[in-house]
Nucleic acid binder design. Structure first.
Lengths: 213, 213
DNA sequence: TAGATTGTTAATCGATTAACAATC
DNA sequence: TAGATTGTTAATCGATTAACAATC
C-alpha cells in the first residue's frame, strides 16, 4: 500500500466534495455504505480508500465526518498551494478562469499566459495575463508547479515543453492531441473529443459507464 | 473479445485523430510502433486495438493509413449521428459550443437548453437554444441520444434524469458532482476538480501520468 | 449480549505485458 | 532468403470483489 494509484486519489477527491456537502448539511457521522452510495462506489472500496488517508472509523457510528475531511484534506492538499498557471486564453481558458475564480480558493489560478498581445496585461477573473515570453520567469518567481494547457493543438506540445522547462511538475492538457512529457511530470489528458466518442460508442450499444476515479 | 472496454474505444479515438493528421501529411503506410510512439502507447496494444476494428496489417508495410481510418471510422461512428444536446449555457457551455462549431461536423451540437429566459431562443455558434420545458419534446423530435451537462451542481442530477426520461442514452457530466444513471445509460464524468487534484497530488510527489484511454 | 459495521485477507477478474510462431 | 513486422497465446500485474474475523 506504499504506492497510491491515481484512481484512489481521484476517488478521495470525490469523497472530499461529497463530505463537504454533508458537513454543510449538518451530518456528523457517516457509514462507508452511505458514502459509497453517494459516490457510486462499493463500501469495501471506500473503507480501503479512507484507510490510506490514515483515518479510521468506528464499528458503532462509522466515520466522523469532520475528522474524515481533515484527514483527506491533509492527504490530498490543495492544488493552489502548488501554484497553477493557465496557458491559452480562448473560450475554454476563460471558462476555466471563471470557474476557478468563483469561491474556489483550492483551485485559484496564479497566472495566465497567451501569445496574443491583445490579451496580455489584462486582469480576467482576478487573474493577471502575461505574454508567453514571461512564462519561465513568472513560473519560477511564483513557484508554480502546475500547468493547465488550453491552447490550440498546434501549440500544445511546445507549451508543455516550456512549462516543464520552467519547473512545472504536473500538467492538465485540454488540447485534443496526445502530449509527451518526461518521467516525473504527471500528465492528465482532458480529452473532450475522446470522451464524447466513448459516450457515442456506448450510447449506441447500451452499456453503462466506468466507475469513478 | 466480444465485449469492448471503454479504454479500447478511447484509444481508438486517439488513433483516429493522429491518423487523420498523418493522412493529411501524406503518409500512406504506418507500423504499429510508429502509431504507438505518436500516442504514447505500446505497439502490441495498438495492434490488438486495431484488430477489434476488423482492420489487418501487412508484415512488410504495416497498415494502410486510409484503410485504417475507414475501419476505425465505421467502428466508432460519429457522435453527431446520434444527436447531441447541451444543457446549461454558462461559460463552459458556450466554450464547448464554440469548440464544437468550428469545423467539427463529428461533434455538432443539435440543440442547447437553459433555464434562463434571457438565453433562450437565441442562436449561439450556429446552435439554437431552447427553454428547459422543451427538453423532452425537442430531444424526441430530433432523435437526440447524447446529452452534455454543463449546469451548476444543484441542477445536474435533475437535468440528467430529464435527459434520460427524454430518451438520451449517453451523458457527459461537467458538473463536479457524481451522478446516478439507470443501467444502460452510459455516463462519462468530466470532473475538472478531481483531475486537478490528481495532478496536484502527483506533482507534489513526482509520479508520471496514467496511460491514455 | 446481539447486531451491524470496520479492517484485513483471500479470490476473482480484467487489462497489460511479454513471448513467439506466422507472415510478407 | 533474411529481417522486421504482424497476429496470437501465455504470463504478469494490479485492481476490484468477496469473505470473514475483529470491533464497538
Amino acid at each position: 500500500m506504499n504506492v497510491i494509484s491515481d484512481k484512489v486519489v481521484g476517488r478521495l477527491s470525490v469523497y472530499r466534495r461529497v463530505l463537504d456537502q454533508m458537513l454543510a448539511d449538518g451530518l456528523q457521522f457517516i457509514y462507508s455504505h452511505q458514502l459509497a452510495g453517494a459516490c457510486g462506489a462499493m463500501a469495501a472500496q471506500v473503507r480501503r480508500d479512507l484507510m490510506v488517508t490514515g483515518c479510521s472509523g468506528n464499528a458503532r457510528r462509522g466515520y466522523n465526518v469532520r475528522d474524515l475531511l481533515a484527514s483527506i484534506e491533509s492527504f490530498l492538499g490543495s492544488p493552489s498551494d502548488l501554484g497553477i498557471a493557465l496557458v491559452g486564453i480562448g473560450n475554454l481558458g476563460r471558462a476555466l478562469m471563471a470557474y476557478c475564480s468563483v469561491r474556489r480558493p483550492r483551485m485559484h489560478i496564479a497566472a495566465a499566459f497567451d501569445s496574443d498581445p491583445e490579451k496580455v496585461s489584462r486582469v480576467t477573473h482576478g487573474c493577471r495575463c502575461y505574454p508567453m515570453e514571461k512564462l519561465e520567469e513568472t513560473c519560477r518567481r511564483n513557484g508554480i508547479l502546475i500547468g493547465i494547457i488550453t491552447t490550440p493543438v498546434s501549440a500544445a506540445q511546445s507549451v508543455a515543453d516550456a512549462l516543464v522547462a520552467a519547473g512545472v511538475r504536473g500538467l492538465m492538457n485540454f488540447a485534443p492531441v496526445p502530449l509527451r512529457t518526461p518521467p516525473g511530470v504527471y500528465l492528465e489528458e482532458m480529452d473532450v473529443t475522446m470522451s464524447l466518442e466513448k459516450v457515442a460508442y456506448f450510447a449506441r450499444r447500451g452499456k453503462s459507464g466506468p466507475e469513478i476515479g
